[in-house]
Design a protein around this nucleic acid. Structure first.
Lengths: 256, 256
DNA sequence: CGACCTTTTGATTGGCGTCAAAATCTGTGG
DNA sequence: CCACAGATTTTGACGCCAATCAAAAGGTCG
């Protein structure tokens, strides 16, 4: 983990960052950014597969991802197994918790090289208390993440391997397509897809071996193509049926 | 579903209700309750095993549970299987979503006879925009629920049946003990426990048959007792170790 | 008391895990 | 630019946890 930039961001720097529609500070950018930036805000870059913070650690920053992919996960101490709770894409917000001791309930690390913008959680909490609009935006993002988490719970608990994996692929495909358009190639209907089959397994609750068997099936059935870190959706209709996937909850519609 | 009381609640009626510490309207009770109550607020009671609202339906109310137990769940359309996403206890808040079309992403029904207090979601959204304190409280509750959902995802994905079931029993035990003290008997360390083994299975992603086998084991090992809708924790230390259970995230500490 | 719901037990099956190892890809240094 | 080491994917054999099927026993409520 290397500090990319220690000093405070300027408004200009933030404007050029690829912050997507549903990002926490969307409205803030217009008129309150100076307030946000006053307190220990900086960019940090991480090398591939490195750790941002760990479960059980005290950590008092929150982050917005600028570029790269990351994961939020927990580990079973008994057996060391990992469960990925969600994938983080550019524009996503992480690290917020409402407990007062600052002990994290999950770990975050990155898959690819990644750049985050860091904020103080305490400062964010102060701002939330004063700015209802900001708080509402946070609620929105939380409910979207909650909806996704619930879909994953349903997949892990009640769906077959084929269904769960199809769901995850479609979810990531559409999140990238909508929120990270630079990584989406509309001519081939494909996205950059930097995660391993082991990551997929840890997200849906399967072993990498079984993930591989199922993915080969999906490829054999001409539903997807997966090659050189590129994921192509060949038959979205059929895949969506298998996964029982629907776009609501991915789009992140606004409350306002 | 029967309408218990059509007219608006009075402040007095609300005071006597067993609203627990972390309820959404905690602070509001003091000085803003009139505002909350102005718009179509009433009590509704449901008979055991009846439905409050269903996934895919448009539904524009939100609720606080006064008494009884309920569940939030989703159903796999392919095979009709149910996944319980969370159990609702007195004081819990349900029905909030940030999507604008009001189509619910999950179903809610009750286990026991239950009484809810109903609010208009639109009205709540308006209030949120004006009242940062209320929004912050909602964020708090959302993050607590999120933390629980993530724990369940980890259980479903990466824990054994014994571990998952132990976790669920401990979670419910402590939530009742802390938030519904009337249902907790400290002399026997037991709680009223109205759910079936099938409900447990649908929450952790197992069949009722397997749940039964595992629960019999837990009873044989003198970790719990389960009789006549009463759950007794006999060996909390060992059970917590098996489940990797910790109280953080259940207590619902305040952000403020 | 009778119908239905829930729990319990037994027998059998199957989806996915585990173990092992080969094949392929990737990135890094010489 | 190649070589090599480690990471990732792929394949096969085998085992086990939990699902499925079936049915009895016990509880609950009108």
């Amino acid at each position: 983990m290397t500090i990319y930039k220690e000093d405070v961001l300027t408004t200009t720097q933030c404007r050029v960052c690829p912050i997507r529609e549903s990002t926490l500070f969307k409205d803030v950018l217009k008129h309150k950014l100076n307030g946000v930036q006053k307190h220990r805000t900086r960019q940090i870059s991480f090398s591939a597969r490195s750790t941002v913070f760990r479960e059980y650690e005290v950590h008092d920053s929150v982050y917005t991802l600028f570029s790269g992919w990351g994961i939020v996960f927990k580990t079973v101490n008994n057996n060391g197994k990992r469960q990925i709770l969600r994938f983080i894409l550019p524009g996503d917000f992480i690290g917020f918790q409402s407990n007062s001791d600052g002990v994290m309930t999950h770990s975050v690390s990155v898959i690819t090289p990644a750049v985050f913008c860091e904020f103080s959680r305490e400062n964010l909490k102060h701002m939330l208390k004063k700015d209802a609009g900001l708080a509402v935006r946070l609620v929105e993002m939380e409910t979207r993440d909650m909806s996704l988490c619930q879909s994953h719970l349903m997949a892990a608990g009640r769906k077959t391997a084929r269904e769960s994996i199809s769901f995850l692929l479609l979810e990531l495909f559409h999140r990238v397509r909508i929120h990270v358009p630079v990584s989406y190639d509309s001519s081939t209907n494909s996205i950059g897809f930097p995660i391993t089959q082991e990551d997929i397994g840890d997200a849906v609750g399967l072993t990498k071996i079984h993930v591989n068997r199922v993915i080969k099936e999906l490829i054999r059935d001409k539903l997807i193509k997966l090659h050189k870190k590129q994921l192509t959706i060949l038959n979205e209709k059929k895949l969506s049926e298998i996964a029982e996937f629907r776009l609501d909850g991915i789009t992140g519609q606004s409350l306002v």
